[in-house]
């Protein structure tokens, strides 16, 4: 097809465009994509940065107008106050005085460690409930045919669309009737129930793609249904189970409204606990920020370790069973 006097490669160039097939075009594309990524990155990460920056500022600098982007006189004042408060509220002041000879007195009376322990208790409990109930339910919904199955799935999906606060009042009544007011069990049950439907949908994707022949092979290998579930399905579902657990865990870890209404000061989890640092005009924002950083550390460390499975688990059903 090439005309006789032209470059023989011209024919291959007919479909070329400057943006995609020239070197400069490539640089332009990469720069544009890079800039866009940067803008989105700043948009997403700036609040986190602001929290960290605030934690290292003094109260005076925080109230300065215009605000400073970098702490001018980095100080650990916020962290010191949080730790002192925790030591005092936790009843360790005497111990610290005896051991280190430091007298700890604090105007704030909040034990961060207790908050973290409370939150862990609630979040692990809720995670376990959601994973155990959700996995069992999704296994049945995926493997058995029965009337009303689609309705049930739709109901579970619909329950995810309700904001939690919409069912605040009935939940409150329910918890009162059960006599569980101001107990962590109340929160475990509520968070577990809130996240289980999501776990059902996530795990159903996994079980739908699960090859029948492996289950049949285990039956031929003389497994009871429970043994099949325990030795074959659960190990293979590990990533999805971890993803489900993390989802439920994070929701419980971050939930504020139920925790604030159903518990009192003595049993607070992290979110309402942090809120007590906020005290009207008197709020020491560097303390709030420092406390926030400290409470995120255990979760961040855990997630960093486990996030590989989390991503695999979430995409597992979609890409390969």
């Amino acid at each position: 097809m090439a005309t006789d006097n032209s470059d023989p490669t011209a024919e291959y160039r007919r479909n070329q465009s400057w943006l995609y097939d020239s070197k400069t075009g490539g640089y332009v594309r990469k720069t544009a994509i890079g800039l866009l990524t940067l803008v989105i990155g700043v948009f997403v990460l700036f609040p986190l940065y602001w929290m960290v920056a605030t934690a290292f500022k003094t109260t005076a600098e925080i109230q300065q107008i215009p605000p400073t982007v970098f702490p001018e006189n980095p100080s650990f004042e916020g962290f010191r106050l949080v730790i002192e408060s925790s030591i005092q509220a936790g009843g360790y002041a005497g111990l610290v005085n005896d051991l280190l000879g430091i007298t700890v007195t604090s105007a704030i009376d909040i034990n961060l460690l207790a908050l973290i322990v409370n939150s862990l208790k609630v979040a692990v409990g809720a995670g376990l409930i959601a994973v155990i109930l959700g996995t069992g339910a999704s296994y049945v919904l995926s493997r058995r045919e029965f009337r009303g199955k689609n309705l049930l799935m739709s109901l579970l999906l619909a329950s995810l669309m309700f904001p939690g606060t919409a069912i605040m009042v009935p939940e409150w009544e329910l918890i009162s009737t059960l006599g569980l007011f101001n107990t962590h069990l109340a929160l475990i049950l509520i968070y577990g129930a809130m996240t289980a439907p999501f776990v059902v949908w996530l795990m159903k994707g996994f079980f739908d793609d699960f090859p029948d022949s492996i289950i049949e092979a285990s039956q031929i290998d003389q497994c009871t249904p429970f043994e099949t579930f325990w030795y074959v399905l659960v190990p293979m579902a590990r990533n999805s189970l971890i993803a489900s657990f993390i989802f439920a865990f994070l929701l419980a870890w971050n939930e504020l409204v139920f925790a604030l209404t159903l518990l009192d000061n003595s049993k607070f989890t992290v979110p309402p606990g942090l809120l007590t640092f906020v005290q009207g005009f008197n709020t020491q924002w560097n303390v709030v920020a420092a406390a926030s950083i400290i409470v995120s550390i255990p979760v961040l460390a855990g997630l960093a370790y486990i996030q590989r499975y989390f991503v695999q688990g979430l995409t597992g059903g979609a890409i390969k069973g």
């Binding site: 022949s213 492996i214 092979a217 031929i220 003389q222 293979m236």
Partner: peptide, 17 residues
Amino acid sequence: ARNRDVAMVFQDFALYP
């Protein structure tokens, strides 16, 4: 199946991954 004491080779082998 688990009580029949049979062994089966599946088309897709069905090994436990």
